[in-house]
Computed example of a mutant assay.
Amino acid sequence: MSKIKATEQAWLMKSEPDVYGWDNLIAEGEGTWDGVRNHLAARNLRTMKVGDLAFFYHSNIGKEIVGIAQISVAGLTDPTDPEGKWAAVKVKPVVKLKTPVTLAAIKANPALVEMELLRLSRLSVSAVRASEWDIVLEMAGGTI
């Protein structure tokens, strides 16, 4: 097993597990990431490229990073937006983390103090720096 290196740009995508969780993505094989109605999060969706990696974060229940997904289709218009002004992407599951990385553990790590997950806590789609990616993977058990 090997360590999954971050792509040029990596992401963190939040979803409530009782609405659409990691298990839903696994069952579907590919899911549409839509319904985002925040301008910065939508800009992040528009910036995504096919092949980019994203941490899949369970919000509200669990509050933890549980897996890694990959952007499979970029540049979509959100199908839930009747006006056609919001963005969406499609994602595929890559791997479930050996050990989920909790929000509490991320907050406790001084090397992650600048992570957008903490600085912009209400943002549903945030950027992840390569250094942050590596630290979170180590916290998840190192190699996948």
Rank of each mutant, 00 (worst) to 15 (best):
P79L: 10
E28A: 01
K5C: 10
D78T: 11
I65A: 00
L40E: 14
T77W: 02
D52E: 10
A127C: 04
T77A: 11
T7A: 08
R122G: 06
L76A: 08
K92R: 15
V89D: 07
G31D: 12
L53C: 05
P82Q: 06
P110W: 15
W86E: 07
R46C: 02
A140W: 06
G142W: 14
Q70R: 15
L103G: 00
E28V: 03
D34K: 15
A140E: 03
A10V: 00
A41V: 00
A111V: 12
I68R: 10
L53P: 00
M1E: 09
A104R: 10
E132V: 04
V101Y: 00
V125F: 10
T7E: 01
W22Q: 06
D52C: 07
L53I: 03
A27F: 07
L25T: 13
D81L: 09
K107H: 09
E16A: 07
E64A: 12
A127N: 04
N44A: 09
K49Q: 15
A104Q: 08
L76Y: 06
V95E: 11
I71F: 00
A111T: 13
L12H: 01
G84S: 11
P79G: 11
T32R: 07
F56P: 00
K63S: 12
R129H: 12
L123R: 15
K49S: 12
I4N: 11
K92C: 02
